[in-house]
């Protein structure tokens, strides 16, 4: 008579169950949107599932665990795609999903909020060109702008600078801060124009709850392509009256703001902005006055 093997049982401690289930839930799905049949050590996943999850009369242990595995990926990929619709439109859905899984395996959520999920995507893309080739440069520009858009949406605002305080000080002693929600980017591609194309089909959503979805979320595919521009554009991603905007800047204005943000004095920032410029001192002075009037109106400048 053949000896029967007792069913595999996992450690019944709370920590052991949670670690095992979390590992199973966060394992990537197959291309058919199913749980992987083989566990990390090559043994059948069904055996692992059966070691801690009960089957019922309709679903095996593996199938019950698969529901959670699918929900995890559908939720997290849905949120990621919502945040990086532009990158998705550059790469196409299949390649974007591949990128997203690779990124999320390396940088899974470590926060109670999904808001910061894509924070490290630009740095990840810089080190994983194969995932985006031959559109690496465009995808990287797009990821930088899309992350900056998230920052512009809900990062804090500092009290704006009172312009009168500028008049009372000498430029060599004036140090200013930019609003935390403002990001300055030099870009090789016209990403602002590309994202405007995408806006028509956009509708803001938020975490409504942890209610589950019956299937992965899909939008109508949009393809975005652009060649690199002869000269880079300099973009400010900011907000006005709680809405996010893009504003293209002159190179000199961009350099000045970047220097201020790095802690330079107003005098030092102006000097670096016009270091390679052919503008006369009078022209430069007029430009700076005009820029500061605009930036003050937009609320970009905060007390240093």
């Amino acid at each position: 008579m053949k000896k029967r093997t007792p069913p595999r049982r996992t450690d019944t401690g709370l920590d052991a169950i949670q670690r095992l289930m979390a590992r199973a839930v966060m394992r990537p799905l197959t291309s058919g949107q199913r749980s992987q049949r083989a566990w990390v050590d090559g043994s059948p996943s069904a055996e692992i599932a059966g070691s801690f999850i009960k089957p019922n009369d309709r679903l095996s242990s593996f199938e019950r665990l698969q529901i959670y595995n699918q929900q995890y990926w559908w939720r997290i990929l849905g949120s990621f795609q919502e945040d990086f619709r532009g990158v998705c439109a550059v790469l196409g859905e299949r390649r974007f999903d591949h990128l997203a899984v690779a990124y999320l395996e390396a940088h899974g959520s470590t926060s109670w909020s999904l808001r910061n999920l894509g924070q490290l995507l630009p740095a990840f893309l810089e080190n994983h060109h194969a995932l985006t080739a031959p559109h690496t440069a465009l995808a990287l520009d797009m990821a930088r702008v899309e992350w900056a858009r998230i920052v512009a949406f809900d990062d804090p605002a500092l009290p704006p600078l009172d312009p009168a305080t500028l008049a009372r000080k000498t430029p060599a002693t004036i140090r200013l801060r930019l609003q935390p929600y403002l990001t300055l980017l030099a870009l090789a591609h016209p990403v602002d124009a590309l994202l405007r194309k995408l806006r028509q089909s956009s509708a803001e959503t938020g975490t409504a709850s942890n209610a589950v979805g019956a299937s992965p979320r899909r939008r109508r595919p949009v393809v975005l392509r652009a060649n690199a521009l002869p000269d880079p554009i300099h973009l400010a991603i900011h907000r006005v009256d709680l809405s996010v905007y893009f504003k293209r800047l002159d190179l000199e204005a961009f350099t000045l703001l970047t220097a201020l943000n790095a802690g330079a004095s107003l005098e030092g920032a102006c000097a670096s902005a016009f270091a390679k410029s052919s503008a006369s001192a009078g022209e430069a002075s007029a430009k700076v006055r005009e820029w500061f009037a605009t930036w003050t109106e937009l609320g970009w400048l905060a007390k240093g």
Binding site: G13, M26, R75, I76, S109, L114
Partner: peptide
């Protein structure tokens, strides 16, 4: 439960109904 060792699942995962839990 929903996170382990600092990694969040963003799901509402069921409890084992044990005295320890």
């Amino acid at each position: 439960w929903g996170s382990v060792d600092g990694r969040y699942t963003h799901d509402l995962l069921p409890m084992p109904y044990t005295w320890e839990a």
